[in-house]
Amino acid sequence: MTSDQDTFIADAVEKALAGDMDAINSIEDRSIRGKAKAALVKAKRAAKAEQKSESSEESQGGGTPEEKVVQSSLSALLSSVYPDEIIEILNEGKVVQLKPQKWNEIATFFRDHADALLDQLECLTGVDLGTEEPLQVRYNLHSMKHRHKIEILINADRVKPEIPTVETIWRMADWFEREVYDMYGIVFTDHRDLRRLLCPEDWEGWPLRKDYEEQESYHGIVVPKVKEGWE
């Protein structure tokens, strides 16, 4: 390629970037026109990448500024309406620990309030923190409209674990709660169909608790406990 052509193409690209696409489209030689178009795409891409790097420099320090505002506003909303129900706000307002008593009411509020609209229960997990600690249930909520998230923790007593169900609020919770009941024995009060999900219905004990012990036999089938020399 001659330097003459180079300057010609560079000229055309500059004009096109300024908004005059005719400068390229009117080139008669097909090969030169093609080269000019390729150069134009390249130039546009470079401009975009530059813009992006600038904007990412501005928002360093976790998430876009917009997201941060929403995160803190969710827990702020909760603490303004139900100040007595909150035990602790953790992780810059992303995680909130609640008392179990009014959980059903709070869940409905969270789902329906215009500033929250947490219409999706992403996950519901049971946690056993250790034999001396209480059991815990964690709810991950997400809003399709506002695109914000919050995590709720609720502790349950180890001896008589009871938490109000949210199965009627998010239908998603139905099997989630059944699984948590199956594995940890946490009773979700007022759940309409609280049966074991994975284990057989006549299984004994709660397998994912730290103090779980296997049963000796199941319907006459031996469960060998001492594994050495049992062959």
């Binding site: 284990c199 299984w203 397998p207 779980y212 089938i221 469960v223 060998p224 594994k227 049992w230």
Partner: peptide
């Protein structure tokens, strides 16, 4: 074998 509480051995 060792930790599967619900698996038939």
């Amino acid at each position: 074998w060792q930790y599967g509480y619900h698996v038939l051995k």
